[in-house]
Write a protein that binds this DNA or RNA. Structure first.
Length: 303
DNA sequence: AGCGGTCAAGTTGAT
DNA sequence: ATCAACTTGACCGCT
């Protein structure tokens, strides 16, 4: 059976991760700031445990952790190390519990660094800050047992091949904790599966195949072909993405996510596969529940 | 309690 | 030139 994944938040459940802005935090003296951050990190660790327990009890086999799990962790002024937080020990303990429960309940954990994380940028400082952020997410990943840190290939910068080459040259500078988890996802505007597959093969970076993005940015590959090629890039359970367009496929903003996944958008090619499919839908756990129901109890039709 | 303004960051394309 | 989109609105500070 397919493992469905929930992304970052709940819409209906009282399971809420906390965040704080650097602007706000920097109004306080350092000690007070670290105390606040410590509390936020501990609170988010407790919340993650709740999220894992909920997923385990509701046929949700994967949970994506928000990039702000440790708020402003790599901010140039407000950033910090775990060792500087007064609740370090309690945070570690709680994260270990998350790791144990996610393993016991078979809830896979993943990360998806946001749009500022670019290994292909021609600007060295952009790449440097991106690496710092990846290292932070890998540190948390190691503590909680997440096995995927998924990023996009970034901008085209007028020459996609050159951009991919730049990214390839950055890979050796990543720690093992990042490198062993790093994956690449096709996007809806610049990098198609056909653009990324050669890179993924050459550098052994798994491709997170997003079929919705593929439909927004076609490349001559069928869903079946892209699926098969993506599968080959994985040395563990493959992870793919699904979403539906907000106003349908003839609407204006096809790239915008709908509240739910339309039955016909789920590829028939993916049925009965041992894969993780992260559900990108605004109705969150309700959308996962509905899709799970649709997959289990009704025959899907090809769109 | 409700609401408006704000939030670290890069790149692109629509207006 | 400005703005919204991107995996995701949440939080502060005022009324």
């Amino acid at each position: 059976m397919i493992r469905l994944g929930l992304c970052c938040l709940f819409i209906d459940q009282p399971i809420k991760f906390r965040v704080a802005t650097a602007t706000h935090l920097l109004k306080f003296p350092r000690n007070e700031r670290l105390a606040k951050l410590s509390w936020l990190c501990l609170e988010n660790a407790r919340t993650l445990l709740k999220a894992i327990e909920y997923c385990g009890a509701h046929h949700i086999g994967c949970f994506r952790v928000n990039s702000q799990f440790w708020p402003v962790k790599t901010h140039p002024d407000a950033g910090y190390d775990l060792a500087q937080l007064p609740d370090e020990t309690d945070i570690q303990k709680m994260l270990l519990q998350c790791r144990e429960r996610s393993r016991a309940l078979d809830v896979r954990l993943s990360f998806h660094p946001d749009q500022f994380i670019l290994l292909s940028s021609p600007k060295p400082d952009v790449v440097q800050r991106s690496i710092l952020e990846l290292e932070y997410q890998a540190q948390v990943s190691a503590l909680i047992g997440a096995d995927v840190i998924n990023i996009h290939a970034g901008g085209g910068y007028g020459n996609k091949q050159a951009a991919l080459k730049r990214m390839g040259r950055v890979l050796p500078h990543l720690s093992k904790d990042v490198r062993s988890r790093l994956t690449l996802e096709n996007d809806d505007r610049i990098y198609s599966p056909a653009d990324l597959l050669p890179f993924c093969k050459q550098y052994q970076v798994p491709l997170v195949y997003d079929v919705h993005h593929h439909r927004c940015l076609p490349d001559g590959l069928t869903v079946q072909e892209a699926t098969d090629a993506a599968l080959k890039t994985w040395d563990r359970e493959p992870l793919f993405h699904i979403s539906s367009p907000k106003q349908g496929w003839d609407g204006k903003h096809v790239a915008w996510h709908h509240d739910y996944i339309h039955k016909s958008d789920f590829p028939v090619e993916w049925q009965r596969m041992n894969i993780t499919v992260e559900v990108e839908a605004k109705a969150k756990e309700l959308a996962v529940r509905r899709l799970y129901h649709d997959l289990k109890f009704s025959k899907m039709v090809s769109g």
